[in-house]
Amino acid sequence: MKVLVPVKRVLDANVAVRVKADGSGVDLANLKMSMNPFDEIAVEEAIKLKEAGIAAEIVAVSIGPAQAQDTLRTALAMGADSAILVKTDETIEPLAVAKILKSIVDQQAPDLVIMGKQAIDDDSNQTAQMLAALLGWPQATFASKVVIADGKASVTREVDGGLETLELDLPAVISTDLRLNVPRYASLPNVMKAKKKPLEEIDAASLGISLAPTLRVISTARPPERKPGVMVGSVAELVDKLRNEARII
């Protein structure tokens, strides 16, 4: 079985986000970029499937600038077999990402696509579902457990109010939630080996897909700040404030 894992290069989760003063966006210049954490979970799950003898081959794919090679090398160092960079310097919306991924799926013919449920930059949570719809494949979002057997995937999902288990015919698209696994760190020898693994580059413009954004970003602003609070010295004072000042209890 072949598994395709899309990964996104995003601002590192530990870097403080700075909104540009002119409202044109978020400042990313010279800041640490990393693989989207949910995509790391997807890579880890694919490797687990390979270690269990279920997956034979893992292909990582990223859409972005030349620097997204680093993100793909991370996936290769973790254990992916090969990588594809769909190169573009434009900002690509989730719908165009899904269309690009569909063309990669058409070419690679994987049995399973597994990817993060959302990217921690634009928080859209839609690319996996869009890809599944464009392919006419079944989907299981927010996976916390994946079992593959007999050409089917049994996926337990984190849903409001509990857990839901679905059975999907393969091929299918799965999006990962936090508790699916704990991604491994790439060891130094594996980082070195990853440099020799195949990484193919495709020009996004060559795919014949419209990459122009369809949502117009009018402004990007800092959220309003809360007014400063007070420290209280005791439980009695806290209860008094909640009752008589906030009048909330």
């Binding site: 919306e93 989730p94 719908l95 899904a98 928080d123 859209s124 949570n125 839609q126 690319t127 996996a128 579902q129 869009m130 890809l131 599944a132 719809a133 464009l134 989907q139 979002t141 927010f142 999902r157 984190e158 849903v159 409001d160 369809t214 949502l215």
Partner: peptide
């Protein structure tokens, strides 16, 4: 919700439009 988030991006993709999330 987890249901809305699962259903609506499929709708958007099938209509060939972006979704405005959340």
């Amino acid at each position: 919700t987890t249901t809305g988030k699962s259903v609506l991006p499929r709708v958007a993709a099938l209509l060939d439009v972006m979704q405005v999330s959340d």
